[in-house]
Computed example of a mutant assay.
Amino acid sequence: MTQQPTFDEIRRAPKVLLHDHLDGGLRPQTIIDLARESGYDRLPATEAGALGDWFREAADSGSLERYLETFAHTVGVMQTREALVRVAAECAQDLADDGVVYAEVRYAPELHTSGGLSLDQVVQAVLDGFREGSDGRGIRVNSLLTAMRHQARSMEIAELAVRYRDVGVAGFDIAGAEAGYPPTRHLDAFEYLQRENSHFTIHAGEGFGLPSIWQAIQWCGADRLGHGVRIIDDIQVASDGTAKLGRLAAYVRDKRIPLEMCPTSNLQTGAASSLADHPIGLLRRLYFRVTVNTDNRLMSGTSVSKEFAGLVDAFGYGWDDLQWFTVNAMKSAFLPFDERLAIINGVIKPGFAQLKWQA
């Protein structure tokens, strides 16, 4: 029997990350430093260890709405160019240290303008930070620009994403509390992106059920689903383990629509009760286009390696499973086909082959 991958081995594997929030991945000490520099005086703790613990504990509420409240403190200290460059550079460094070779990191430009920055200045600062942090580290980091689903600026952010798509912005997203804010409220933005041949993903099926997924796909035309956990509600599993897919679940699987799953975060927001019961196990068995992501590394105290290690423990996954998740993610990235193929064949497969041989 092949030995299961260890955490240290997993860290050395080339990994791909599609769903990670810039304002959810700050280093606690960086938050403290930036708060001191900007005069932000509302932090719940001023020691890095205690502050990191507070974020994780506050996020463990089981409520998406309560989980989202923690971002007031990270966004609060990300209101200057210098702060955005630092946070983005450290994000790229931290991901590279975890073995990530390609990442799409999302953020909402509209949340970073209270200090006087324009939307364009916000985007440029983050791009500069990613470039600085990626230099010489064997990682490529692109941006996804997010519009908040409870606001009315999605068209403006969609136009911003198209304007910067050739210099590091890979696509568009909407995020925020799902209940009461369906993606169809932003239909004009999605139709504009489709006319511009641009990519977008939609947070759907995390805090709300199948109607959110259905609207994201069939009304809005999403390329990927952010989370998509509740697709499980359209699958019936018999006592003998056989599964019957409803029409929406079958469509998602047949069309190979990528699911940006974030196991630890899903537990925190109540989208799943335990890792062993997380829908990712069934969806992987049924060959949905599942990818493994972090969502918010600070709030979840996680990394891609930790997510993989948790799945190895919960489901007994081996190297072939981890490579399958990774190739899924690279296939689903908002990059040109030839560039995706080059990373799969030139980086991911050789990297996993070496680790499997050493094991």
Rank of each mutant, 00 (worst) to 15 (best):
R256T: 06
R256L: 08
R256P: 03
R256E: 05
P258W: 01
P258C: 05
L259P: 07
L259V: 15
E260R: 13
M261I: 15
M261S: 12
C262S: 14
T264K: 06
T264M: 04
T264V: 07
T264C: 02
S265H: 03
S265T: 13
N266P: 09
N266Y: 02
N266D: 11
L267W: 02
Q268H: 12
Q268K: 12
T269W: 06
A271G: 15
A272H: 07
S273M: 02
S273I: 05
A276Y: 06
A276T: 11
D277I: 11
D277F: 13
D277R: 15
D277W: 11
H278G: 07
H278P: 10
H278W: 04
P279S: 15
G281D: 09
G281Y: 05
L282G: 14
L283I: 14
R284L: 06
R284D: 13
R285A: 13
R285M: 10
L286N: 14
Y287Q: 15
F288P: 03
F288A: 13
F288M: 15
F288Q: 11
V290H: 01
V290N: 09
V290W: 01
T291G: 11
T291K: 14
V292L: 13
V292S: 02
V292A: 09
N293D: 09
N293E: 02
T294P: 01
T294L: 01
T294C: 07
D295M: 09
N296Q: 13
N296P: 07
R297Y: 06
L298T: 01
M299P: 00
S300L: 09
S300Q: 05
G301C: 08
G301N: 09
G301L: 06
T302N: 08
T302E: 00
T302F: 03
S303A: 10
S303V: 04
V304W: 06
V304S: 12
S305N: 14
K306W: 10
K306T: 13
K306H: 14
F308W: 10
F308C: 12
A309M: 07
A309T: 08
A309Q: 10
G310V: 00
L311M: 11
V312H: 11
V312D: 06
D313F: 02
D313H: 09
A314G: 04
A314M: 04
F315M: 05
F315P: 02
F315S: 05
G316A: 03
G316T: 03
G316Y: 02
G316W: 01
Y317F: 11
G318N: 03
W319R: 07
D320W: 07
D320K: 08
D320T: 05
D320H: 05
D320C: 00
D321Q: 11
L322Y: 13
Q323M: 14
W324Q: 11
W324M: 10
F325R: 09
F325P: 02
T326F: 07
T326I: 10
T326H: 11
V327A: 12
V327P: 08
V327C: 13
A329P: 10
A329V: 13
A329E: 07
A329L: 10
A329K: 08
M330F: 09
M330N: 09
K331S: 11
S332H: 06
A333G: 06
F334I: 00
F334S: 00
L335V: 00
P336C: 00
D338S: 10
E339G: 01
E339S: 02
R340D: 08
R340L: 03
L341V: 11
L341Y: 10
L341S: 10
A342L: 14
